[in-house]
Design a binder for these strands. Structure first.
Lengths: 153, 153
DNA sequence: TTTATTATTGATATTAAATATCAATATCGT
DNA sequence: ACGATATTGATATTTAATATCAATAATAAA
């Protein structure tokens, strides 16, 4: 099995476990949204509206509210994360790995988002938290500026 | 002159310069809001609503829209920054120094916000940006978790 | 398998923050 | 003081997020 396929199964299991734990139900709609989101949005940052419009094409009967609620569910179950890049719309992204935390550089000109990971930043940050006796649950680093295409630099 | 007083004057100058450059006008209201914001909200993170409620007590005639627009103006002129800690409300904070960038640890239990600065993180981050030919204009790092009072740790 | 229970769905309504509108007014250069 | 232009404050509008609820679907129990 490829690593991608393996990751996919893990996510599915995490989600199913969450569903079971919270005594929720698995539904057709959740399956459809799950597949669309995790097949086509790895490494992307989709708004509820965007995903809804996408899914509507193949499944016109699925409502906005269901997409909205399902993305929240993904987040709660820990398989997706919610981001906010300052345009007032929440964006969701599939979590690829529990261990490697990544961050974002957002071009304020073209809106392009490039991701990066940096071990040193991670370790500094946990060190700072430890010093302040702060129990880290989550963190986000966003760099705003001009990407290589847009920047004069 | 104390360093604080000096910083205050610098901010005022920056703001006045911005007003001049953009051919805007200085008004009573802007003065009042400037003073309230920079006298009482250093190191704090105030919402438009909160600042409006505060100012209304001493100046009942000032409208919400004016406070809203003035805070945006402070941000545009570079003397305040806008933050968003995930509760759906924008918060404004006076910028204390152009050079020393600071970040936030937000307690998800009690809402307490503790600030920190870390040279190493700053340098890593600029290094990453340079590698990606990304021209940094701004950046923010937020750590979410439990503070020393709320955390079981 | 049928029934009972409970969660989900989709349409729509509501809320809340951000922002736009506009007539009356204040500011500022001449 | 005058005229041009920006600002103000009240209110309206927009937009994203979230709540509501009757109809329906999923699961557990009989």
């Amino acid at each position: 099995m490829t690593p991608v396929a393996k990751r996919k199964m893990e996510r599915r299991k995490t989600f199913n476990d969450y569903i079971a734990k919270k005594q929720l139900k698995s539904t057709k709609q959740r399956d459809i949204i799950f597949n669309e989101f995790f097949n086509y949005y790895i490494g992307r940052h989709v708004t509820v509206e965007e995903l809804y419009e996408d899914i509507k094409r193949s499944n016109p009967s699925i409502g906005f509210a269901t997409v909205y609620r399902t993305l929240k569910l993904f987040k709660e179950s820990g398989i997706a994360s919610e981001r906010n890049f300052g345009d007032g719309k929440a964006r969701y992204e599939p979590i690829r790995s529990e261990t490697e935390h990544h961050h974002h550089m957002i071009c304020t000109e073209c809106g392009d988002i490039v991701e990066f990971a940096n071990m040193q930043i991670e370790s500094c940050l946990h060190q700072v938290a430890k010093l302040n006796e702060f129990n880290v649950k989550n963190h986000k680093l966003e760099i705003y500026g001009l990407c290589s295409s847009c920047g004069e630099s």
